[in-house]
Simulated assay, not measured.
Amino acid sequence: MIARLQQFMTINWLLTIVGWFWWAWAHEYRLAAVLGTVFLATLHAGVLGLELLLQYFVSRHDAVPPASVRALLKAWAAECITGLRVFCLRQPFQHEAEPDYLPPPSGRRGVLLVHGLVCNRGVWSPWLRVLREHGVPVLAPSFEPPFGLIESWVPGVDAAVRRLYAATGEPVLIVAHSLGGLAVRAWLRGGGDASLVARVITIASPHRGTWLARFGTTPNARQLQLGSPWLKNLARDEAAAPHGLPMHCFFSDCDNVVFPPSVATLPGAENRLLRGWAHVDLLEAAELLDAVLQHAGAAPDGSVASRRAVPPMAR
């Protein structure tokens, strides 16, 4: 569904740009043709800029030291490019380009990749390629419905965990981006078998909600509002019946979607701050993939070579 929706949006966006330029130029509105084309072609950059501007003001009093204006501008420029690559190419047109990889059992742990809101498996394309090259079994399902309640993804998470465990015979390493981290927590809260899982790594997941969700109208966006009843109930249930799995939470001080930054952390988890990355661009951080390869047994310790990374935060 997300692929079809983004195909429609991308094609119509391009047709609108071309159509406006052709019409204005044909009617000799030359300046309007150029300015209108630039405006339409950079709409996404304006939206991202507004998000980071809100992030700057909202995060000033957060427990995490705020990012500099220069860092935010760099994150904005990177996200403008990454956003186009992900939402206008990988997800709508190339989401099946990189296949899952389930080789014969070799004693190697498998990795389950769980995407976030308004995404599909295409967001993981570079990861799928690298993990396959390292011989790591990997599954990256597309979870639906995209705009329903978070717990509607629980059956899909359960099926993927069991499929990967059955294929490898080893506990699964779950890596979840954004809303995907909450879907995994909902699965564990709802009776998910923690014995099938080795550990969980979340990336920019709004564990305590996000300020930006106040503008959302979908069921899952309402669940992501800061201090929502759903999030409070989730935390209460986890405290009453802890799953005991090691949790690692990677997050950024330049996240344009999940902010203020500390909402992406969890008590008792290894919370690691990677400075200078926007929400989707964070998946490009080399330290993240290095950490996954290490936990999957495919890379030696000390191989981390990430740009803009900092040591783990205190628990």
Rank of each mutant, 00 (worst) to 15 (best):
182 L>I: 14
182 L>D: 00
182 L>E: 07
183 A>H: 00
183 A>W: 01
183 A>P: 01
183 A>R: 03
185 R>W: 06
185 R>A: 00
188 L>I: 10
189 R>V: 12
189 R>Q: 12
191 G>W: 01
191 G>N: 02
192 G>F: 01
193 D>T: 13
193 D>I: 13
196 L>D: 04
196 L>I: 09
200 V>R: 02
202 T>H: 01
202 T>K: 04
204 A>W: 07
205 S>D: 01
205 S>L: 08
206 P>H: 02
206 P>E: 04
207 H>D: 10
208 R>A: 15
208 R>L: 12
208 R>F: 13
209 G>F: 00
210 T>S: 08
211 W>E: 12
212 L>A: 12
212 L>N: 06
212 L>H: 04
213 A>R: 00
214 R>Y: 09
214 R>D: 14
214 R>C: 14
215 F>I: 15
215 F>L: 15
216 G>M: 04
217 T>L: 15
217 T>N: 15
218 T>N: 11
221 A>K: 15
222 R>M: 06
223 Q>K: 09
223 Q>D: 02
224 L>P: 04
224 L>H: 01
224 L>C: 13
225 Q>N: 11
226 L>T: 13
226 L>S: 12
226 L>H: 09
227 G>Y: 00
227 G>T: 03
227 G>C: 09
228 S>M: 06
232 K>H: 14
232 K>A: 14
232 K>S: 14
233 N>R: 15
233 N>S: 14
235 A>G: 07
235 A>M: 08
236 R>C: 10
237 D>Q: 14
237 D>E: 15
237 D>A: 11
240 A>H: 09
240 A>M: 06
241 A>C: 12
241 A>Q: 14
241 A>W: 15
241 A>K: 14
242 P>E: 05
247 M>P: 08
248 H>A: 10
248 H>M: 13
249 C>Q: 01
249 C>F: 07
249 C>I: 04
249 C>R: 01
250 F>E: 02
252 S>G: 08
252 S>A: 10
253 D>G: 07
253 D>I: 01
255 D>K: 05
255 D>H: 03
255 D>C: 00
260 P>F: 03
260 P>H: 05
262 S>V: 12
262 S>K: 07
267 P>G: 05
267 P>V: 04
